[in-house]
């Protein structure tokens, strides 16, 4: 079972992602803002196989989560996928500079997300 942390302040996206990445193959933990995501990471001692995060969120944005995750374990960092409305060039560049593994612009194609998630989990 792969453990995924989904950080998203929109109420619809977690419902969709939880449904397209179903149990028992995936266990999706949901955080509704950056602060809660940081707390969940600390509480679970960064034991996640994948993080899917939005960028624009209250308290801490997706880039802050990304930096924290990538700096926590430099040897084998948790793969991160950004799924965001804010997909302008600068943001995509910033994301890749910080080490994001994949970038999806909303609206997403659910089947595409599943493939990208599986690909990153297989690499890990």
């Amino acid at each position: 079972m792969s453990k995924i942390l989904l950080v998203e302040d929109d109420e619809v996206m977690p419902k969709i992602i939880s449904r397209i990445l179903p149990e028992p193959e995936y266990q999706v933990d949901i955080a509704v803002n950056g602060k809660e995501a940081m707390q969940k990471l600390e509480a679970n001692n960064y034991q996640y196989d994948l993080i899917i995060t939005d960028i624009m969120m209250p308290y801490a944005n997706g880039f802050e989560i990304l930096s924290k995750v990538k700096s926590h374990d430099r040897e084998k960092p948790i793969p991160v996928i950004i799924v965001s409305n804010a997909g302008n060039e600068d943001m995509i560049m910033e994301g890749f500079k910080l080490g994001v593994d994949d970038f999806l612009k909303k609206p997403i194609i659910p089947a595409e997300l599943i493939i990208r998630v599986k690909r990153l989990l297989m690499k890990r």
């Binding site: 969709i16 609206p107 659910p110 595409e112």
Partner: peptide
């Protein structure tokens, strides 16, 4: 409309 702002393709 809200769902469509999150998903596209066949789902949209």
């Amino acid at each position: 409309i809200h769902f469509r702002s999150n998903v596209k393709g066949n789902a949209g």
